[in-house]
Structure formats: structure tokens, C-alpha cells
Amino acid sequence: MRWISFAIILLIATVLEAGNLLNVFAVGGWTIRPGILITLLVFYSFSCRGRDAIICSFIIGFAADLTGTVMGPHIICFGLLGLLLNQSNQILYARRAIYKVMIVFAVYLIAETFSHWLGLLKGLDTQGSFYSILLFTAVYSALISPVIWSILSSVSGGFAAMKSKSDRTYR
């Protein structure tokens, strides 16, 4: 696992998610922006070995909480989903873009819905049209996920190859 490249990628993704730059790509009256951290979660959960995937998922969850209002919900949800994705990567691991889109879509819906419910426990309120915004953001995030995935693959130096090599070495 290349932790330095992971840290740099995560920092860039977190700053993009929290900042204004993604507003350039915002669409519709709800100014829906794509989620980048969710693609990072799916990518690293699939690409890393068990231990690294767990650590990455929790750290990405922490970054997602930093961009929001309440600390905690995303760490828990991303951590659990990261473990689940990592354990099921033999079944779900997708090379074709359409599978990546579907997985990111499903993971985004599950992660954000559960984070929202945890946020309600922490005293947050449901905004009007929350579930519509959630659905459209999931669609938008999923649609751009193959692009982010390819960028991550090239930046991380082809994790898939590294994984198969490390699989042979360690397992």
C-alpha cells in the first residue's frame, strides 16, 4: 500500500468535496455536486488487502465527516461498507465501467442513507427533498466514477497489478 499517494489523493478529494471548485460541475436547481470520496472508498476497498482496506475506509469516512456538519456517522458507515466491499471483492470486483457505476451508485445510497439516519440521532434534521437530492447525487457520483477510477488507477500505479502480485506473495 502506497500510503503517501493515498494521503495526497485523499487530501485532494477532501478539499474538492468541501470547497467550491466542484460547484463548477453542479447541476440543477438543487446545485447537485458529485461525491468523490465514495469512489475512493469503493476503489480502495476493492484494490487493497484486508488490513489496508479497513484502515483506508475508516480514514476516508473521517475525511467525509470533516466536509460535513457532524463527526462520526461517515466513519462508521464507510468503515463497515469498506470491510463488506473488501470481503466481497471476489464476487463484486468489476472491470467493466457499468459494474463500477452500479456499485458506486448502490454504495453511495447505502452510505449516505445510514449516515443521515445516524445524523438524525445526533440532532440533525431532514432537509426538504433529501431523498431526491440523495438519489440524484448518487446517480451523478456513479456516472463520473469510471473517470475517477481510471485517474486513481493511473495515479496509484495500477493497484490491480499490485494486488494480484501481493495476493501471490502474502496469501
Binding site: 468541501a18 470547497g19 467550491n20 460547484n23 438543487w30 446545485t31 447537485i32 455536486r33 466536509t67 460535513g68 456538519t69 449516505e112 443521515h116 440533525l124 432537509q127 433529501f130 437530492i133 440523495l134 447525487t137
Partner: peptide, 10 residues
């Protein structure tokens, strides 16, 4: 300097 998220009016 920014907004909180897609889901909050902040």
C-alpha cells in the same frame, strides 16, 4: 469560503 454539503443549507 464554501458550503457544508449537498444536504444542508449552510
Amino acid at each position: 469560503t464554501g458550503t457544508s454539503s449537498n444536504y444542508r443549507r449552510e
